[in-house]
Amino acid sequence: MSAVRPFTLAVPQAELDDLHRRLDQTRWPERETATGWDQGVPTDRLRALVDYWRRGYDWRRCEAMLNGFGQFKTMIDGLDVHFLHIRSRHDGAMPLLLTHGWPGSVIEFHKVIGPLTDPPAHGGNPADAFHLVIPSLPGYGFSDKPAETGWGVERIAQAWAALMDRLGYDRYVAQGGDWGSSVTVTLGTQAPSGLIGVHLNMLSIMPPDLGDQLDPDEQRAVAASRHFADVESAYARLQATRPQTIGYALADSPVGQAAWIYEKLRGWSDCDGEPENIFSRDEMLDAIMLYWLTNSAASSARLYWESMGSFRPMKVDLPLGYTQFPREILAPPRRWAEQVFSQIIHWNSVEKGGHFAAFEQPALFVEELRTCFRRLRE
Rank of each mutant, 00 (worst) to 15 (best):
D80N: 15
V81Y: 14
F83S: 03
F83L: 05
H85V: 04
H85Y: 11
I86S: 06
I86D: 00
R87A: 09
S88W: 00
R89W: 00
D91T: 09
G92K: 14
G92H: 13
G92P: 11
P95C: 02
L96S: 02
L96T: 02
L97N: 07
L97E: 03
L98C: 12
L98G: 01
T99A: 10
H100R: 09
H100E: 13
G101V: 05
G101D: 13
P103W: 13
P103C: 13
G104L: 07
G104Y: 08
I107Q: 14
F109W: 04
H110G: 01
H110K: 12
K111H: 15
I113R: 04
I113S: 02
G114K: 11
G114W: 14
P115H: 03
P115Y: 02
P115R: 10
L116G: 08
T117C: 11
D118Q: 08
P120N: 11
P120Y: 11
A121Q: 11
A121M: 06
A121T: 10
G123H: 07
G123V: 05
N125I: 06
N125F: 06
P126G: 09
P126E: 13
A129W: 05
F130A: 13
H131G: 08
L132S: 06
I134V: 13
I134H: 08
P135E: 14
L137S: 14
L137I: 15
P138I: 14
P138R: 12
P138T: 13
P138H: 14
G139L: 05
Y140E: 13
G141I: 12
S143F: 07
K145W: 08
K145Y: 03
P146V: 10
P146M: 08
A147G: 14
A147C: 05
A147K: 12
E148P: 00
W151I: 10
W151V: 07
G152P: 07
G152T: 12
V153P: 14
R155I: 10
A157R: 12
Q158H: 10
A159T: 03
A159P: 01
W160P: 01
W160I: 02
A161N: 08
L163A: 02
R166I: 10
L167N: 00
L167E: 01
G168E: 02
G168P: 09
G168T: 09
Y169D: 09
Y169C: 04
D170Y: 00
D170Q: 02
D170K: 02
R171F: 04
Y172E: 04
V173Y: 03
Q175M: 09
G176P: 00
G176M: 03
D178T: 03
D178G: 03
G180C: 10
G180H: 10
S182H: 03
V183E: 07
V183W: 00
T184Q: 09
V185I: 02
V185H: 02
G188T: 04
T189P: 00
T189V: 07
T189N: 05
A191V: 01
A191I: 00
A191H: 03
